[in-house]
Amino acid sequence: MTVLSRFSNKVVIVTGGGSGIGQAVVRRVVSEGGIVIAIDVNETGLKAGVKQTEKIAAAGGRYSFKVGSISDEETVKKIIQEVVDQEGRLDVLINVAGILRSSKFTETSLEEFMEPITVNLVGTFLTCREAMPHLIKTKGNIVNCASTSARFGHPYMAGYSASKGGVEAMTKALSWEYMKEGVRVNAVCPGGISTPMKESQGERMGGLDQSLFAHLMRIDYTCGEPDHVAAVFAMLASADGSFMTGEIVKVDGGVHN
């Protein structure tokens, strides 16, 4: 296996780095020499990342974390400025942090509808806004996390689908707005991935999760793993994705083809 070092001397913020896809992205970027700062409300998961990354850090690669919610404006401002003050620069922002709420549409309260929008969409907006001036200086890039639920009508997920549709639209808008400044903005669009978030969704719905439509259509559906998605995040965030901006890359094992 070829050892990559695409993130040597690159300062990378990963939101949602305490579990699931975000944690896999942290491992991948550190293993390629990145200086990674993870943000999450899950302090236990963030601390677990210390031992994980110590074993795989490439030359110069290192990991640290900051506990906080990306949906809080002052927290986002403070953390991103702290990162830039400590490291002297910011090269990449990878937004993975998100929450999922599942319920029958007519039984969904306004609060339940707004929760994923506040974290997934508003949180992504805040981190992108605060990171952008620093990324302009380094000609850096952003990779956001969308979802197949934004495009393919997953049931019981109106709020989540709306939030991820917003992330996709905002990604495309920013890619055009900052193209001349040399900042690329892309997104990854995962399908069903084996993560704590997906497992908790299945429990809330009595086992009826986002792969429901696949079972109804008699598709032999197998969830992907976080590392499958992390590999695509890493490609887009690295020089290998240097001729890509405004792209929404689907990673779902072909289920939505």
Rank of each mutant, 00 (worst) to 15 (best):
V3G: 06
V14N: 00
G16M: 04
G18C: 08
G20S: 09
V26R: 00
V26D: 06
V29I: 15
S31I: 05
S31V: 05
G33I: 11
G34P: 02
V36W: 01
I39V: 11
N42G: 04
T44S: 12
G49M: 08
K51A: 14
K51P: 02
E54G: 01
E54I: 01
A57I: 04
A59D: 08
Y63E: 06
F65H: 11
S69F: 01
E73H: 10
E74S: 15
K77Y: 13
K78S: 15
Q81C: 08
V83E: 04
V83H: 06
G88Y: 09
R89Q: 10
D91S: 02
V92P: 05
I94K: 02
R101V: 11
K104Y: 11
F105M: 09
S109R: 03
F113R: 12
I117R: 01
I117D: 12
V119W: 03
T124L: 08
R129T: 13
E130D: 08
E130G: 07
L135P: 08
L135I: 04
T138I: 08
G140K: 04
I142E: 04
N144P: 03
A150I: 04
R151F: 14
F152Q: 02
H154R: 07
G159V: 06
G159T: 04
V167N: 09
L174W: 14
W176E: 13
W176N: 14
W176Q: 14
K180V: 06
E181D: 15
G182A: 09
G182V: 11
V183A: 03
V188S: 08
I193D: 03
K198E: 02
Q201V: 07
G202D: 09
G202N: 08
G202I: 05
M205H: 03
L216I: 12
C223Y: 13
C223G: 03
H228D: 15
A231Y: 04
A231Q: 11
A231P: 00
V232M: 15
A237E: 06
G241N: 13
S242R: 14
G246W: 05
G253Y: 02
G254R: 14
